[in-house]
Simulated scan of single mutants.
Amino acid sequence: MSLSILFFAFLAIALPILALAGVAGATASRPWRAAALGLAATGLAAGYIAGAELMGRPKPVRLELIEAGSEEARLIASHYMEGKAIWLWLLLPGEEAPRAYALPWSREVAQALRRAEAEAEENGTGVRMRRPFQSERDDSAPMFHAPPRPPMPEKSTG
């Protein structure tokens, strides 16, 4: 998540809180004004802390809205816990930093990921994830795949 997205999300929370505190402060008696300002300050601090805390947590793939149309992502790392989740670190097209995502646990998906990782190791390539944020899957194309090894450059005879 880029910092600008987090900033605008925080603004979307902060502006209504500040507006409500302003209205309450203008129309209320002195003790209620102090309470309104205290609640606003608490809400702003909680929103900021929650946003900063969430930056380090994997996002469920079903909640990805901004990059939902991505056709493919490069898998940087994966980790899974049977019965819990499959965690992925994906590098999206045009991005410089990978992002953490969580897939719901599925034995079939975990096995497909394991096969793609073994094939990538054998090919000397990385693993790619097709349509990472689509809930409807095309069964003809695997979710994870390892691109083939690029051909060797032609030798020049000269």
Rank of each mutant, 00 (worst) to 15 (best):
S4L: 07
I5R: 13
F7E: 06
A9H: 09
L18H: 02
L18V: 08
G22R: 11
G22A: 10
V23K: 12
G25H: 10
R30F: 13
P31W: 08
W32S: 14
R33L: 01
R33C: 09
G38V: 12
G38I: 15
A40L: 15
A41S: 15
Y48K: 05
A50D: 07
A52D: 07
A52P: 11
E53Y: 15
M55R: 15
R57F: 03
K59I: 11
P60L: 01
V61W: 03
R62N: 10
R62Q: 03
L65P: 04
I66V: 06
A68N: 11
A73E: 15
I76Q: 05
H79Y: 04
E82F: 02
E82D: 05
G83E: 00
K84L: 05
W89P: 04
L90W: 14
G94H: 04
E95K: 14
A97L: 14
A97M: 15
A100S: 00
Y101P: 02
A102K: 06
L103V: 02
R115Y: 07
A116G: 02
A116M: 00
E121D: 05
G124N: 00
G124L: 02
V127C: 03
V127E: 00
R128F: 01
R130C: 05
D138K: 14
D139H: 04
D139A: 12
M143D: 06
A146K: 02
P147M: 05
P148Q: 14
R149G: 00
P150V: 06
P150C: 07
P151D: 00
P153K: 05
K155P: 14
S156I: 11
T157S: 12
